[in-house]
Simulated assay, not measured.
Amino acid sequence: MKCGVVDVGSNTIRLSIYRCEGGRIKLLLNKKEMAGLAGYIRDGVLSDGGILVACRVLSGFRALLDNFDIRELYVFGTASLRNIVNTEEALETIREVTGLTVEVLTGAEEARLSFLGAATGGGASAGLLADIGGGSTELVAYRDGAVVSGCSLPMGSLSLYSRYVEGLFPTQEETRRIRSFAAEELEKARTPGGTCRHLVGVGGTIRAAAKLCNDIAGADPDNRLIPAAELRDLYKGLKKGDKNTLRQILRSAPDRVHTILPGLIILNTVLKAYEVETVSVSSCGVREGYLLDRVVGRQKDAGGGGAGTDA
């Protein structure tokens, strides 16, 4: 069976097409649109313009799957639809315009599914997972393949940019304010005294940061294991905001030019708080977790068999 999974996020709307066979999944195609829905939120309300942007992207994805003769499409939303006051209105409009029903994940559910997806790729037996999205950040501490604790923080790379930054790139004062807010939110959520030497990173911010680190170091572009010290050095270089820095971003991660620094502030706040030494960038995340849980898991319950991924 082939199916599509769409993640309606605060910064991007992403479609992944998979083949599901024998309890396993294989990624066939990835497509994303930089919708920037967080930028359409004012006083907790997603504007009509933002809702229509979501409808346009989802209609395009639906048409793409129709061209491939793929009938199974699963759509879920995260902070972009969860942290607004007009969620039901937005969902109803999307249903009327596109014919698609969007499932809105709670913060706890998003954290669990992010871990489920990332865990399929293996890695350290104990550590911390961080999924830095456009509108929220999920943290999951795990040991021996099981979740120990998890939380969802109301801050993401695009939501912090929209809240604090006036221009294209944060000023020193705006950077300071973002850093202070991120530290306060993390302090509210984390368990005092907890440390994790290894962090599994999920999401566009961490992928872009790894790409920048590899570019600067002249490392293999596909390298997914980044020392925390390199990420701290990257942050220090980016916050200066000089022309060389901007050129570096435009070469390696042009679609993240306005959100990479807010996202890195969140990441480095986490690295410092938990005394992280190494970061591995997961190729899988919440979409794979959603598919394994909602589709493969139900197939397994119905007909038996294990679950896994070749994504």
Rank of each mutant, 00 (worst) to 15 (best):
I265Q: 01
K26D: 12
P227C: 09
A35G: 07
E110L: 04
D131W: 00
S114F: 01
R62D: 11
G107E: 07
R287V: 06
S280C: 13
L168C: 05
T245N: 09
V257T: 14
N67D: 15
T78F: 01
T171D: 13
L116A: 14
G237C: 02
A183P: 07
S159M: 05
D43V: 04
L73D: 02
S283I: 08
A183C: 10
E288K: 07
D242I: 02
L238V: 07
N223V: 02
D220K: 06
E109Y: 01
T106Y: 01
F169M: 12
L128T: 04
L73S: 03
T101F: 01
I132W: 00
R176Q: 15
R197L: 11
L267W: 04
T278C: 04
G150D: 10
A108C: 06
V97H: 08
S280Y: 05
D66A: 15
K32Q: 13
S283A: 14
Q299W: 08
L160R: 03
S152D: 09
G218K: 08
G297K: 06
G117D: 07
N83Q: 12
R197Q: 15
G44L: 08
A189N: 15
G50S: 11
G289A: 11
R19E: 15
D215W: 04
A182L: 05
L199Y: 05
A307Q: 11
L64E: 15
S283L: 12
L58P: 03
I265L: 12
K31Q: 15
G77S: 09
G23C: 09
S59A: 15
F115W: 10
D7F: 00
G36M: 07
L168W: 06
A38L: 00
A54R: 02
R143P: 01
Y235I: 02
G36K: 13
A183T: 13
K239T: 14
S283K: 14
D255A: 11
A130K: 02
C196K: 05
C284K: 12
A54I: 06
K26A: 15
A217W: 00
R207H: 06
I94Q: 03
G285S: 12
T12V: 08
N83C: 01
A302I: 03
I265Y: 04
A54D: 05
T195K: 13
R14W: 00
S136N: 10
E277Y: 00
A253L: 08
R62Q: 13
G194F: 08
D220L: 03
S283N: 12
T309A: 15
S80Q: 07
I51D: 00
E89W: 02
L158F: 06
G135Y: 00
